[in-house]
Design a protein around this nucleic acid. Sequence first.
DNA 1: CCTATTTTTGACCAGTTGGTTAAATCAAAA
DNA 2: TTTTGATTTAACCAACTGGTCAAAAATAGG
Lengths: 204, 204
Amino acid sequence: MNDLKKDNTEEKILNAAQNVFIEKGMDGARMQAIADEAGINKALLHYYFRTKEKLFNAIFSKVFAQIFPNLMTMVRSERPLEEKLGIFVETYIDLLQKNPFLPTFILKEMNRNPDFLAGVIKGSGVNPTEVIAMFEKEMDAGRIRRMDPRDILVNILGLSIFPIAAGPLITIMFFENDKAAYKAFIERRKKTVTEFVLNSILIK
Amino acid sequence: MNDLKKDNTEEKILNAAQNVFIEKGMDGARMQAIADEAGINKALLHYYFRTKEKLFNAIFSKVFAQIFPNLMTMVRSERPLEEKLGIFVETYIDLLQKNPFLPTFILKEMNRNPDFLAGVIKGSGVNPTEVIAMFEKEMDAGRIRRMDPRDILVNILGLSIFPIAAGPLITIMFFENDKAAYKAFIERRKKTVTEFVLNSILIK
DNA sequence: CCTATTTTTGACCAGTTGGTTAAATCAAAA
DNA sequence: TTTTGATTTAACCAACTGGTCAAAAATAGG
């Protein structure tokens, strides 16, 4: 058996499925569309992943694992809070900007099947306790004001994710459908979101 | 012709369609499911709204019109900024809490068909210039720090909407699937989001 | 080179889905 | 009561969808 060929087709399928699922969602995606995008037969698709659900679950886990864990590596660095936050927001918005359908995909599908999400979270080893501990340490040191650390995390994520998820709305309402202006707006937010958060939590 | 009966069935259909569409989205919703929820025949559904798309568009416009315009009435009041913001965040989070599928529905569907969204926005008369003007006035008066007013609006919306849209994720990661704890978290945010924003923009 | 196994394909199938149609029911006007 | 038009229904249909299957092509091993 040729592992190279096998790996190649499997990878082509995973890439194609990721593209189609992220854009259309579980319900909107068609197995035929995935096969087409992968340049293969539909039967071959079922040969590798028996059912649509199995394939979807594989993709969702994969995408989820790509998005969240690298959040952690940054938290563990020894830089000061301001820098950590700046780098995180910048890389995160950058990632979302390059994958604009990613936020709605994850948000929609996590609501469609929360039980599966629970499994994925546990499997991915993502755990916010470290981040929470970090914020609590800063509070104890009197460097940021006392508040629920979970609020800080949720706020950072919301400020980063929402403007991408609501891209079409913002583009139309604020920029008369000028996509370049919207893009520049998001670009600026890589800095302004950090400022906004620090301004709120830092004790001067 | 009996207008009462006609209005009644039409209303039943609209309510049923709203429920099903908001939970399942355009692709996931089934005309049969809508008919069942309305307690009518599927053919009758097509008698009132010829196609699924027409029905969906009617619902999307209706839901959108319910959500955004009442945002405006509050902005126009003569209260101080702090109060306006507090009331807005509270009523808005409250609305979303009662309709937890609403955020993902609008986010997902606005990405599916941005052109239609443009029409809906224009038709709904929603226009952010008033809000922007309000923030600019506050900046001129030196009461809030100078920044892009669009950022302020987007931030407020993101801080309010995201925690509901990402409800399942937050419930699992932060509260070990304890839904009551999550609900209390959202409840607290009716106050803390306002604090968070004011803390960031207000000049002390 | 031949054989056994894996990979790939085209044709096909059963269930579902949005939508249609013709007839039945109902309400109101004449 | 009869007629007229709107409302409601059951039965039906064509297109689509996820999934299967048997055969062909490719590959690896002896």
